[in-house]
Design a protein around this nucleic acid. Structure first.
Lengths: 337, 337
DNA sequence: TTGTATGCGTTATCAC
DNA sequence: GTGATAACGCATACAA
């Protein structure tokens, strides 16, 4: 049933090498021979065996993606973009899910390393040394974090946070809280630092750092009471999931969004537009992040001698929806004091 | 840099064959030789080349999954389960996204066929002949549809619809609408038929079929006005996304859920619990569907002679949340008549 | 332009 | 229990 180059060669009346050439470098073969071989190949449904090919060429025609959680809409969107772009380049796509466990990443990478031409890695919390080690196993592109000379694709977190805060200030908010993500998260460090630096430029605005939370809905529900107690009238969340958790937690306490509290998320995952109220969020081009990572990886693979590319600071754009409103002069909910 | 079996053999002072055996059939080699070889292998960081191995064994150690849309939470969850189970069996996982285009599936399958031991295919709308053709390219397991003798994993749609309708009837609803999915969708046919058959057993309940809609939020928003005009007090949606669209469309018209209308979705995707009001939904074990598909596939691969497995009708369980309530005696919104 | 010969890294077969 | 050897399917260098 499996048809090999030998079969094609026999039927077309040529040698195996001519079959190989007709497919890989058509120009090196006489036009009439070429068409005959190609016709026979198509007729027989011949497809080159990737394993045999990769054994010779050293290339696999595959690339892979490692993410912490495929069910997380953030990574689902990146995966979508990754696959689409990979396909457009003719690559097949491996995926791996570390289940939020950075310790699982090295093994996943090693298992894939020999079967891919390169990998894209989303590791928000993996230690630098470990990342560097994986980069030695196989061409690597990091998403949303940096690590030494390793190639990278990041979004402009700083500008996103700036946009969100400028907007909240324009709405009249003067006490703004930040519900952070995991302590070890590279993005969180970046977003927190942006929060502080933007705040420092606006002395009339008080900043409240609520702490570090899980980057999921549960993290937001955990932060909700702290937010209420903080006296802030608006909050920026580490990401949309945390913002949803805040929304839920506030609702339980009778705090109405956006009347009593304005909420801004980051990432603008697809469900943020569907929620009610719609979540105002810093729009991140998630699918493009996946695409850009593939572009970077392909560039590396095609010219391994070139220095690592850094597609830094992809632009973001605040998307305003129903979870934000002008500050009320007299807060309706019980704050401290 | 890449270390081969030859390197291990040389360092360990044995032949390449022994190295191979020590890794694949440890029992066939003397204990002391084995430990020495294994130690050297580990020390050198040796990993067998999968391409070379697959060339001779005919097996790849990979399996693949083809879905219509990785960003759709329904398939994201299935993908999650697929990968987890694949990994636990030692398989690496390919993925492919057909972008909702059934016509793209055969090409995706063909591209992957030679690199995998088998594929799981989610093709809600692909024509039977095409599916059958793909099943010839490579061991195949279908998710949520059947096709001749091709192996299959499905959930118990009929019972799910029954649970939903019995529940709505218990709440007092006597006019229940169904917002269907795509006309060509296998699941939709199944769910619609269950809707009718359950309805037929309850002569005191009127059924309204609103029509066929896109299986996304947009489909639900399109159906909302039809739902209002139908005079139904409760609706069952093809899936949760359609239910969300209904929710949004009803909100725009001032119809309050669940006060004026009860809404039930199907699938219970993760975001259904986060929405407000929470969506009552027929809970489908999505992650388990992915797992079950891998189990079925692995069974096929291990014993190709066995007849195709059919893990039919995985159990479902209605999850009640805020989008359903007892029928009000006097509807507040304008219905016909 | 085409065919022959070689080798990629591994497993399988068969001697020893 | 171990080693030499062939073979998997293909791409490449080289010869013709």
């Amino acid at each position: 049933m499996p048809v090999s180059a030998r079969d094609v060669a026999r039927v077309a009346g040529v040698s195996v090498s001519t079959v190989s050439r007709a497919l890989t470098r058509p120009d090196d073969v006489a036009p009439e021979t070429r068409t005959r071989v190609l016709d026979v190949a198509r007729g027989l449904g011949y497809l080159p065996n990737p394993a045999a090919r990769s054994l010779i060429t050293g290339r696999t025609g595959n690339i892979g993606l490692v993410v912490p959680d495929l069910e997380n809409p953030f990574f689902a969107s990146i995966t979508k973009g990754f696959h689409a772009r990979a396909r457009s380049f003719g690559y097949a796509a491996f995926i791996a899910d570390s289940d939020e466990d950075p310790a699982a990443e090295p093994e996943l990478v090693r298992n894939l390393a020999k079967q891919v031409d390169g990998l894209v890695l989303c590791s928000p919390r993996g230690p630098e040394e470990v990342i560097a080690g994986m980069a030695r196993d196989c061409p690597l592109v990091l998403v949303n974090r940096t690590c030494g000379d390793v190639a990278t694709v990041t979004v402009d977190d700083h500008d996103g946070v700036r946009q969100a805060m400028v907007y909240l200030q324009a709405l009249g908010h003067r006490r703004i809280a930040f519900a952070g993500g995991p302590r070890a998260s590279w993005s969180n460090a970046r977003r927190l630092s942006a929060f502080r630096s933007v705040g420092a430029q606006h002395p009339d605005t008080e900043l409240v750092e609520l702490g570090f939370f899980s980057p999921h809905v549960s993290g937001g529900t955990a932060a909700a009471d702290l937010l209420i107690a903080s006296g802030a009238t608006a909050a920026l969340a580490y990401n949309d999931l945390v913002a949803f958790g805040l929304l839920e937690g506030l609702r339980r306490r009778g705090v109405v969004v956006p009347r009593d509290m304005s909420l801004v998320g980051i990432d603008d995952i697809p469900m943020s537009g569907l929620a009610h109220p719609g979540l105002t969020s810093v729009g991140t081009p998630l699918v493009n992040v996946g695409r850009a990572a593939v572009d970077t990886l392909v560039a590396m693979v095609r010219d391994p001698t070139a220095p690592a590319l850094h597609q830094d600071d992809l632009p973001v754009q605040l998307v305003v929806r129903g979870s934000t409103a002008p500050r009320r002069t007299a807060p309706a909910h019980a704050g401290p004091g």
